[in-house]
Computed example of a mutant assay.
Amino acid sequence: MADEESDRFVVGQTALVVPVPEAEPAVRAWRDRFDPAARAGVPAHVTVLFPFLPASLVDAGTCAALDEIFGRHPSFEVRFEESGRFPGVLYLAPTPDAPFRRLTEAVVDRWPEAPPYGGKYEPHPHLTVAQGQDDAVLDEIEAGLRLGLPFTARVPTVDLVAYDGTDWQHRASFALQ
């Protein structure tokens, strides 16, 4: 959920994310300080789709459709070996990233009214570590991150989270096959 406006989340926004608990030892201290999503309760993750539908439109039918969509995709392993950057953002790059892209494409095919990042950016699978910082700070964080790399993670689920005005709340998990 990284973009320059993610420190201004909107009540009722939702997102589909892949939690990556295996990343926490390497990124938690950095994310707690430099990632607004972490401070708002989102664990280390790779975003599948942000924003998704408004929370008021997410009902049992939406969840059933998500369950069916994600259930067609196999679970997979991913490795995090290196970092990358967008302007003002430091992230870890998942390898391979194609399974994440397929998950995003499948959801957008079903809900074209919910393009990734509101259509502002092309989706690029990543695990945000820090944002809104200058290059010197990002250089320092990046050097510290190298000590925790590489690591491998298993991806068995996609989670639906919703912003309540204070924190991102877990709403549902959808199993991959």
Rank of each mutant, 00 (worst) to 15 (best):
T157E: 14
T14V: 10
D3V: 00
P125M: 01
D3C: 12
F50V: 07
G132P: 11
A106Q: 02
P115D: 07
T62C: 10
M1G: 15
W30Q: 13
A93S: 11
T128H: 08
Q131A: 02
V18G: 07
P96T: 08
G12A: 08
P94R: 04
G148W: 01
R101W: 00
E77K: 08
P94N: 05
E24A: 14
P25H: 04
Q169A: 08
S6C: 12
Y91N: 06
V108Q: 12
D164Y: 08
P150N: 08
V89Y: 01
V129T: 06
L57N: 05
D134M: 00
P54T: 05
A38I: 02
A153M: 03
P87Q: 03
H124A: 13
W111E: 14
M1I: 12
A114W: 01
F9T: 08
F86K: 00
V161H: 05
V58H: 13
P125L: 02
S56Y: 04
E81Q: 11
F9P: 14
A162D: 07
G132W: 01
A106R: 06
H124K: 09
A23Y: 00
A26G: 05
V129A: 04
T157V: 13
E4R: 11
E142R: 03
V11I: 08
D164A: 06
T14D: 06
E4P: 11
A29E: 06
V58T: 09
A29H: 11
M1H: 11
P54R: 06
H170L: 14
V108A: 11
P74G: 11
Y163M: 03
D3L: 01
W168Q: 03
R8S: 15
G148S: 13
S173P: 01
